[in-house]
Design a protein around this nucleic acid. Structure first.
Lengths: 112, 112
DNA sequence: TCGATACATCAATGTTTGTTGATTTATAAG
DNA sequence: CTTATAAATCAACAAACATTGATGTATCGA
């Protein structure tokens, strides 16, 4: 599901349909408070769904829904261990997004 | 409408309701392909709505709607000049987001 | 002051998203 | 083999969002 963003000027990236789709999916994944809270919890290491359920006081199916969104966007990975599925952040995707927003910022600083 | 994100660890940021609301609004603004295209066009400098309308082949009211979303999120500013309203990127907000995603990435790299 | 232009806002509508509770699948333990 | 636990998926629903076309507002030039 996840496609990497090739290094390209942000102007070009924002002209390509596939890149637009990919970017909007990642930002959409980050656009929900519950999902941002999940990201916050994963900052101290991988967690299984049950730990997140308890930490965020959310129902299991609700978390499953949000974790799928984060996973489809390439922001987290899942790893099954017995009965548990552990979710963890993907630093590579976070780097990609940091670079992208950073280069948009640079472009903006140059022109504005 | 726009509130700045104080420098704070991402863990703490992602625990505060006001910061969550602010972040989710910014990411939501970036989660739509039309709005990303607008950002792309603004990378070469400020543009009036009519220029964006032409460049993106979109109706005026549609662009107005999306520009409002970007403005409410603090990603763009508007400046009236006679009959025209010019929109431009806000590098400060883009820096903020870069710093935030970057620090999440650092946390992820440390733990994953 | 009249008409034209640029833009914002509104009402109506269809689509997408998030939530809930129930069901299903997978694994493990007794 | 049966039962319990962890998690994914599904159906139903409500809320939020995006689009369109129409109307309103501000500014400018004639």
């Amino acid at each position: 599901m996840s496609v990497s963003l090739p290094a390209r000027t942000p102007e070009k990236t924002l002209e390509r349909s596939a890149d637009l789709a990919r970017l909007s999916r990642v930002f959409h994944a980050l656009s929900d408070e519950t999902r941002l809270q999940i990201v916050g919890k994963l900052l101290t290491g991988e967690k299984c769904v049950c730990e997140l359920t308890e930490a965020l006081d959310a129902t299991q199916s609700r978390l499953s829904f949000h974790l799928k969104s984060l996973k489809d966007a390439g922001l987290v990975t899942d790893r099954r261990a017995g009965r548990w599925v552990h979710y963890a952040l993907r630093p590579d995707t976070l780097s990609e997004i940091t670079r992208f927003v950073g280069s948009v910022r640079e472009g903006a600083a140059r022109c504005c």
